[in-house]
Design a protein around this nucleic acid. Sequence first.
DNA 1: CAGGTCTCCTGCTAGC
DNA 2: TGCTAGCAGGAGACCT
Length: 279
Amino acid sequence: MPELPEVETVRKSLKKVILNKKIVDVEIKYNKIIKNKTDEDFRKLLIGQKFIDIKRLGKYLVFVLSDYYLISHLRMEGKFLVRRDEAIGKHEHIIFYFTDFNLRYHDTRKFGTMHLYSKNKDIKSLVPLMNVGIEPFDSALTIDYLEKHFSKTTRPVKSTLLDQRIISGLGNIYVDEVLFLAKLNPENPTNTLSRKNISDIIKYSKLVLNKAIELGGTTIRTFSSGSEISGRFQNELRIHTKKVCPECGQEVIKIKVGGRGTYHCHRCQPLKRLKKTGD
DNA sequence: CAGGTCTCCTGCTAGC
DNA sequence: TGCTAGCAGGAGACCT
């Protein structure tokens, strides 16, 4: 499933293909992907638009067009495919036509979203992006910033790390990896973390995401014509989907935290106990 | 207001 | 073998 590294991989590769290309038509096969426009408006506004740039904010792709921003979230299964005259597949929901090829938004589970806005506002003020927090690579992600947010919540640290309003870009797989490297139990109440723990979270978030970007993500099927790219980060996973802890050999425990499948090692990631009064 | 639960959707899997 | 119930999951909606 696409997380920040996957989205970054898509951004870079797609940029090579569609930059300066002009949309000549748009076909909408399933319209619930499009959140803030009617089918006709979406189509009419996009025809004639040229791709100027592709940016990324957290896990969102931002297509910068001549006059609009097209903001796309791939959620679990979204991908962009470059095709020519192949028949339109069952899961291809939105097709952008160019003179010599077309770009298809493919999404098996139909969870992805698109928002279209004119460029007269700052992108960070727009509806899906206004809640995107600081990325691990951003120097604004400091221990002080996280401590401020962490100190006031008792929810499990895993849930806090998945909260895109605080840190953006960590998804289910990468949070498990970060917590394993930081030797923190996913169920630890967030406000029990020390400054050292927070510092480790920042350090390992950068490490894990950078490594994953370098290797092209964890798993991704893709957009280039016919071909398929498998991210190589899946070979680097230490705890997520594992049966045995690579550090101590203990059996890896799988639980649910905040409704998400969560892997951790009971020995390497012990649960912190809340301070007892009078201790 | 924080935090929990439901919802969206389809392919896959376990179980019979 | 074929069927179905149940599950997975990011983020917004909705409820407490």
